[in-house]
């Protein structure tokens, strides 16, 4: 489903454009005919579990890997033919924070500046916000930094040559929740400077921070839309159900004739329901009759994860 209806529809060519990109490793299809566009100044999220093909896509866009078929352009430049020109405009942060552990914060930064042919001073305005938090530790070696600080340093290094496009492959994996929130705030500020950002994450709750997201499963893009409209398209009523014991409850929910699907979700179960045939109150009575204690049933707003579960259950 190519999503050509961008935010700034028609005025500007897309910053990133992929058409029928496919890549396979042996018998594994890492990418299956993926097509999408990303507009300038957008935060575009690729949401999906590990092994869904997100990193493969990022490595193709970063000109590190060749697609088997299909076409991709970054800033209107072909990823295969014009890879040199793309590399000057692209900031890439690979899955693991690619820092030199034995070099200090400052040395890492000036090294990456040097290989991109710039100085830290000329790029300083862009990274001041982020680097400001690291500056007290600039003599510390990268291996001695916390996960959050490593992440910030890696982002500074990716920004050092003032790229117009940022490719961030799972930047929040292995980072504490506070640092994750701070990181998304930084991305929002970068977007204001009209930097286009593509970010991948296995955390569904981060999807809401993106302008548009693609739900990725087994190398295919299931849906590409703004997170809110993905949620608003959730076709059924969604109820959260709690009760003791929880394990048996899930089985009985799945057996219930008015429930289409039920799955564990944190400390409750989520169930999609034929709401025209049953109310939460009735379901609660049904469950109490089956001997469950402390039963609580309430209607809830679906999250992106619910949408993901729903879409992948269909396919």
């Amino acid at each position: 489903m190519p999503a050509t209806q961008g935010i700034a529809a028609g005025h500007q060519p897309p910053v990133i454009s992929c058409r029928q990109l496919s890549k396979r490793y042996g018998s594994v299809e890492a990418l299956r005919s993926v097509s999408f566009d990303v507009e300038r100044g957008e935060i575009f999220g690729c949401i999906g579990p590990d092994g869904a093909g997100k990193s493969t896509l990022f490595r193709i866009l970063a000109t590190l890997l060749r697609a088997d078929s299909g076409r991709a352009t970054v800033e209107g430049l072909d990823v295969q033919k014009d890879f040199r020109a793309i590399r000057r405009r692209l900031g890439y942060m690979p899955g693991r924070f690619s820092l030199y552990q034995d070099l200090s914060v400052e040395e890492n930064l000036s090294f990456f500046a040097a290989i991109f042919g710039v100085t830290v001073r000329e790029s300083y305005p862009l990274i001041r916000d982020i680097y400001g938090q690291l500056e007290p530790f600039k003599a510390r070696r990268a291996c001695k930094l916390s996960g959050g600080m490593k992440q910030k340093l890696a982002l500074c290094c990716a920004l050092i040559h003032k790229p117009s496009v940022l490719l961030l492959d799972e930047p929040t994996t292995g980072v504490d929740p506070i640092s994750r929130r701070e990181f998304w705030e930084m991305l929002a500020r970068l977007r204001q400077q009209s930097i286009t950002i593509i970010v991948s994450t296995p955390y569904m709750d981060e999807a809401m921070r993106c302008d548009r997201i693609a739900l990725v499963k087994d190398g295919a893009f299931l849906q590409i839309e703004a997170p809110q409209s993905i949620i608003s398209r959730f076709p059924q009523a969604l109820w959260s159900v709690q009760g003791d014991p929880m394990y048996g409850l899930l089985k009985d929910l799945r057996r219930h004739e008015d429930i289409m699907a039920a799955y564990a979700f944190g400390d409750a179960h989520h169930a999609t329901v034929r709401s025209e045939r049953i109310t939460p109150r009735q379901l609660g009575e049904n469950l109490k009759a089956l001997g469950y204690l402390n039963v609580e049933v309430k209607e809830i707003q679906p999250t992106i994860e619910d949408c993901y579960m729903h879409l992948t259950a269909d396919s």
Binding site: Y92, P94, R96, F97
Partner: peptide, 13 residues
């Protein structure tokens, strides 16, 4: 192993 090679490869070096 540490992934820094990828960044070096995407750099203009």
């Amino acid at each position: 192993e540490t992934g820094t090679m990828e960044v070096l490869l995407v750099s203009p070096v």
